[in-house]
């Protein structure tokens, strides 16, 4: 992979974004949950960098802390999806018989499950004493575990192709075990595909968390998340509080950066 500008820029942007979220306690001026009830929907000022929301909470602080939740959910879910997909796909690619067919059938099954309703049901059965972070982790784990099927199928297909290559067959005929084949021959071929899949899934999962929270199914108030920040915009009257739309450019640029990076990866496949 050549280090070109279109790789460096989005990678640097993602790095800055992650760093900013990680340094939220330092960069945030106010607590994200502190309500300044005398100044709701305040315009950006030196005191409130991006203004305040309807309850007088600092939008800049909520944007930073909310990014931790939204990006964190995306990272956890995408890592889980790609991790499970990589293991299942590679194992399916290595075997030719019933196991391979079983994994692919399971992937089909997962693709047909209505996950939104499953998430609703899971949310209903979760203990109420869980903190927003725990709820977030559980939900992103479910989203991630549910989303392994698509990368899993692709990786299984690629692994099957690699498995048919001569040098792999030679290694097998010389007595190489499955673990050796996977580690030495399959993984180096599959990892770029897994990274590309991760970059493709990441913005989708961040958007999934934002969407779920936007509709009240994700991390609840008062915890800050980009979905919670955007939620008041459902109402046309919120046009007077436009600072609430501040996660939108971040979401758009995140999608663009991931697309550029994954496109670069796809080009090198």
């Amino acid at each position: 992979m050549k280090w070109r500008l279109r790789t460096i820029l989005p990678a640097a942007y993602l790095g800055v974004l992650v760093l900013a979220m990680a340094l939220a306690p330092v960069l945030a001026v106010h607590s994200p949950e502190e309500q300044n009830r005398d100044c709701p929907c305040a315009a950006p000022s030196s005191h409130f960098i991006l203004g305040t929301d309807e309850l007088g909470r600092d939008v800049w602080s909520r944007l930073l802390y909310g990014g931790r939740i939204s990006l964190g959910a995306g990272f956890v879910a995408a890592s889980l999806s790609v991790g499970i997909g990589l293991l299942a796909g590679a194992a399916a690619g290595l075997s030719r018989g019933i196991f391979r067919r079983g994994v692919l059938a399971l992937a089909e099954l997962f693709l047909s499950v209505p996950w939104l309703y499953l998430l609703l049901a899971i949310r209903a059965f979760l203990p109420l004493t869980l903190s927003p972070a725990q709820v977030l982790f559980l939900l992103s784990a479910v989203i991630g575990a549910a989303g392994w099927a698509r990368p899993g199928r692709l990786i299984a297909q690629k692994a099957g192709e690699v498995r048919e290559r001569e040098y792999v067959e030679v290694a097998e005929s010389l007595g190489a075990g499955r673990w050796h084949l996977m580690r030495r021959h399959l993984m180096p071929e599959l990892l770029p595909l897994a990274v590309t899949q991760f970059l493709l899934l990441l913005p989708g999962y961040v958007l999934a968390e934002v969407t779920l929270t936007f509709f009240g199914l994700g991390v609840g108030e008062p915890a800050a998340s980009w979905g919670n920040l955007l939620a008041p915009l459902r109402h046309p009257a919120a046009a007077s509080c436009l600072q609430l739309a501040s996660p939108l450019p971040l979401l758009a640029s995140l999608v663009l950066a991931c697309e550029l990076l994954s496109g670069d990866g796809r080009g090198n496949d």
């Binding site: 949950e33 309500q35 309807e54 309850l55 509709f215 009240g216 199914l217 609840g220 108030e221």
Partner: peptide, 18 residues
């Protein structure tokens, strides 16, 4: 507990919390 579809009640809950 608060109804997730009722934005006003969610805001009221946040205020009670504070």
């Amino acid at each position: 507990l608060v109804n997730s579809n009722n934005q006003q009640r969610a805001q009221m809950a946040s205020m009670i919390q504070q």
